[in-house]
Amino acid sequence: MEHRYLGRSGLKISEIIYGNWLTHGSQIENDRAFACVHAALDAGITSFDTADVYANTVAEEVLGEALKGQRRESLEIFTKVYFPTGPKGHNDTGLSRKHILESIDGSLRRLQTDHLDLYQAHRYDNETPLEETIQAFADVVRQGKALYIGVSEWNADQIRAGQHLARELGVQLISNQPQYSMLWRVIEERVVPASQEVGVSQIVWSPVAQGILSGKYEPGAEPPEGSRARDEKGGADMIKRFLRDEVLEAVQGLRPIAQDLDLSLAQLAVAWVLANPNVAGAIIGASRPEQVTENARAAGVRLSADVLARIDEVLGDVPETDPARTVSPPTRVA
């Protein structure tokens, strides 16, 4: 496993990050979740990402239990705040000072740790003044409850404004967590240049496009049994936008490239996002330990310019590139 600096900071994270969205506390039983976490540790993964909203706080509990007994200083633990949790009352959502300061205490308790390495705003809150949000995050850092702050799915202007306020308050905003893959490239035109300008790295989610880039979905065929496309708990809704024959045919066209490099299609997909110099890490999820082991092997793989050009040629105009698709909720989800 290789490590990269996160943003313009001294914090190093593993190139492959284990995330438990849609799995822990939801899709898989706890014993399998523990096995996946231990497979991540065995593969050299030191960075773990979750959020309080995943499985309505249960995912944090499962991750905390799975990491119990590990040397805390050897890990980087990330979580997020914004979406409604608990009884989902009127103040149980957003990025108000009240919600942030109450939420981090709950996250620390569930994760069984006294601090987070990275605390992230899960979305931009259009109903709370940005000054209030960043001040609350700065206080969390000063209290020692988080070492650094980050955001998720913020657009270029929001990242610039957030970093400006953070610097005024003497804290570091060092990361953005967007969706990014060969098929979903909406951050490239605006978010990445803005992030490079202000010292923010990307921690990307869904580098394998919810499994589409693994090649297991074939054009004209029904999704395999047990796959995310058949999961009615949320996975099916996320993946359906990619389940088009033109997308699936293009993905199958990547097989010769992967074979030439002795990589699986999933490994090629993860290596592709890591080829972007503004990406510090790629989050992988898994329902089986062997998936973790396989995808972790993408760490350290460096794709040449010729390979990247071949990938672009095969995919053509299939990838989504419209920067306007980076959109935070217009109002709070409550």
Rank of each mutant, 00 (worst) to 15 (best):
K80M: 12
N91T: 11
T50E: 14
P84V: 04
G44A: 06
A33G: 12
G64F: 07
V53K: 03
I28A: 09
A55H: 06
R72A: 10
P84D: 05
S47L: 12
A40S: 11
D52E: 15
R97V: 09
E76L: 03
Y54R: 13
F83S: 00
G89Q: 02
T85N: 02
H90V: 03
E102K: 10
A66C: 13
K88Y: 08
R32F: 11
G89Y: 01
L95H: 01
P87T: 02
Q70W: 03
F34A: 13
K88M: 08
D52T: 08
T46S: 12
E102G: 15
L95W: 02
G94I: 01
L101T: 15
E29A: 14
V58D: 14
A43N: 03
A59C: 11
T79F: 11
L75S: 09
A33H: 06
A39H: 02
Y54F: 14
I104K: 04
L75R: 06
S103A: 15
R32H: 05
L75K: 05
L95E: 00
E102Y: 07
F78D: 03
A35F: 06
A40E: 01
D52Y: 09
I104F: 07
S103Q: 10
D92F: 02
K68N: 11
G89P: 00
L75W: 08
T85K: 00
T50H: 08
I77P: 00
T93E: 05
F78P: 00
F48K: 13
S103K: 03
F34C: 05
E73M: 06
T79I: 10
R71H: 10
D42V: 07
V58Q: 12
G44C: 09
L75A: 10
G106S: 14
D31F: 08
L67D: 01
Q70Y: 03
G94D: 04
A66Y: 00
A66R: 02
F78C: 13
A55M: 08
V58F: 07
Q70N: 11
I104T: 08
L67V: 07
D49M: 14
A39W: 02
F78I: 14
K80N: 05
G69R: 14
